[in-house]
Amino acid sequence: MTKPDSHSSDHVYESISFHAMGGPCELKLYAPTRGAVQAAADAAIAEVQRIEKSYSRYRDDSIISAINNAAGKNFTAVDEETAALLDYAHAAFEQSDGLFDITSGVLRGAWDFKSGVLPSQKRVSALRQKVGWQKVEWRPPNIRLQQAGMELDFGGFGKEYAADAAARVCKEQGIEHGLVELGGDIHVIGPHPDGSPWRVGLRDPREPEKAIHIISVRQGGLASSGDYERFMVVEGRRYCHILNPTTGWPVTEALAAVSVLAPLCLIAGTGATVAMLKGEQRGQEWLAALGLPHMWVTSTGELGGSLVAAGR
């Protein structure tokens, strides 16, 4: 992230850092007064915390825990927001031909990327049985996971949704210039007060502290996915944290990194995640068909996508 280089005299600028959604978060906001920035930031952080609390699978009192604890047993009735999120997950599952699957979280039980040891195929296969959106009975507003041990996990889109929701809250508070960043997922509320865009660096998958490309964003969501976040190299081969729900194994021949720009961070995130899951060739095709501005990096370091072409 680059710091804003322009500063309008009738706007106060503040950058507010906090920790949520399992990572560092930042609000960069302009408002007429310091009080207005603070009020917007307080409301936005409260919204992020509300979503985190509602959908964390680590909290016993979350709706996700209630659904997961009833797996193989009874139906759980959900509220409207949860229902809309489940509908979204369903749409993403269908559009990605089953690759975007919010039940795939259980596979993490087999994969310890810090160990440097591959799990046994038997262990992976056993967990694979607990994966599959098609094994979920979603009859709004009631949901039931068919098998005991199945789990829903909103980790694949909760952070992006929270970024969009926090941006909406800021806008409701009158903020027109600023951005919300939750652990690398960004929703740009609007450009700097002088109209100049935010300059956002996209990570180099092989040197994640460096930017491989810098893009300009005036408004909308930007999300990235890559094989660099958690991975292990076993016998010269790279195994990343992006697990294919249909095999239970990390995606093979995947793109190294993908970034997508969309009106909403949620859609950008889904676009990027699915592109990673599809593998190098089909991932590029998916991005092109989606029609959103995007950038990809292959495992050999080749850059491509409409954002790269536009930036040059």
Partner: peptide, 28 residues
């Protein structure tokens, strides 16, 4: 920046439609 003039893909339409039903996004 948005130089892609293609018609919205069906996948994008489906995802956008689902996203719009989210109270956190569309608000009141």
């Amino acid at each position: 920046m948005d130089n892609n003039k293609k018609a919205q893909s069906s996948a994008l339409l489906a995802l956008t439609g689902a996203a719009l039903a989210l109270p956190g996004i569309a608000g009141k």
